[in-house]
């Protein structure tokens, strides 16, 4: 759930817009480069964007007795690296802001910063870290997607706490309040997103081995091992 239209003071809204803009511009460049040098990846790019579209339309009930939705940005960040998700995530946010009155144009910068920038980078970083420890691919994918989802809403909580500090307990007090609304609600949803991302990645390893190898998700050696295991 994103910050609603008009619910960030103008100065904050503008500041987050300025912070997010370079990432999105850089992402547009990365996206054009990717499409130009690997035209065959366009279809998988579309599928990554589509995954974000589906997941951010699914409002799910959570343990706190309220509803929120996953973001779906982890998959694309792992496949194509985070800059590309800065674009695909922002497109999703724009669609929701314009047609669904969900999120908003004035809060687009802040929402893009949390969902399309911090989420993908945190998720991608976690994915790389878990892989470096030698964990199986799917374990890394799960934690990557989980962190991408959860960190998005932690950032949302921080953004709101900075804009609306508590009169008594300051920013930290407000952070506890917004954190309990967004971040706690998000925990089971982040688990769901992790599992769904693993599911899609499993289908991709079955259907698009060549592409995943080119993108570096499957290494040549891993593919060979898998094939040998499959042949046995």
């Amino acid at each position: 759930m994103h910050i609603a239209e008009g619910y960030l003071p103008p100065v904050h809204a503008a500041a987050w817009g300025v912070a997010a803009a370079p990432f999105v511009v850089h992402g547009v460049r990365a996206l054009t480069r990717e499409v130009r040098s690997n035209p065959e990846s366009t279809l998988l790019l579309g599928a990554s964007g589509a995954f974000t579209f589906v997941l951010s339309a699914l409002k799910l009930p959570s343990v706190t007795g309220s509803c929120s939705h996953p973001t779906g940005t982890g998959l694309g960040a792992i496949l194509f690296r985070p800059p590309i998700m800065a674009v695909l995530g922002t497109i999703t946010l724009l669609f929701q802001a314009l047609l669904l009155a969900h999120g908003g144009l004035t809060t687009l910068g802040a929402n893009a910063f949390s969902m399309a920038i911090v989420g993908p980078w945190a998720g991608y970083g976690t994915y790389l870290l878990v892989r470096r420890f030698g964990a199986p691919l799917m374990v890394a994918v799960f934690f990557g997607a989980f962190v991408a989802d959860l960190s998005t809403y932690c950032v949302t909580s921080v953004q709101l706490a900075l804009a609306f500090p508590d009169q008594g307990s300051g920013v930290m007090g407000a952070l506890a309040k917004f954190g309990s609304i967004f971040a706690v609600t998000q925990i089971p949803l982040a688990v769901s997103e992790g599992l769904l991302t693993v599911l899609v990645m499993r289908l991709l390893t079955q259907s698009s081995k060549g592409e995943l190898t080119r993108l570096g998700v499957l290494t040549g050696a891993a593919t060979k091992r898998r094939e040998e295991a499959g042949a046995r």
Binding site: A4, S66, S68, A101, A174, K177, I181, Q186
Partner: peptide, 29 residues
């Protein structure tokens, strides 16, 4: 099971009772 964003709006009103959203969606279903 209301939306977390609506709950956040309520929390904002509690923290800053005089805050008025300064922009409204161009199109609302």
């Amino acid at each position: 099971f209301t939306g977390a964003d609506a709950e956040a709006e309520t929390a904002i009103t509690e923290l800053q009772p005089d805050y008025e959203p300064w922009f409204s969606p161009l199109y609302e279903p």
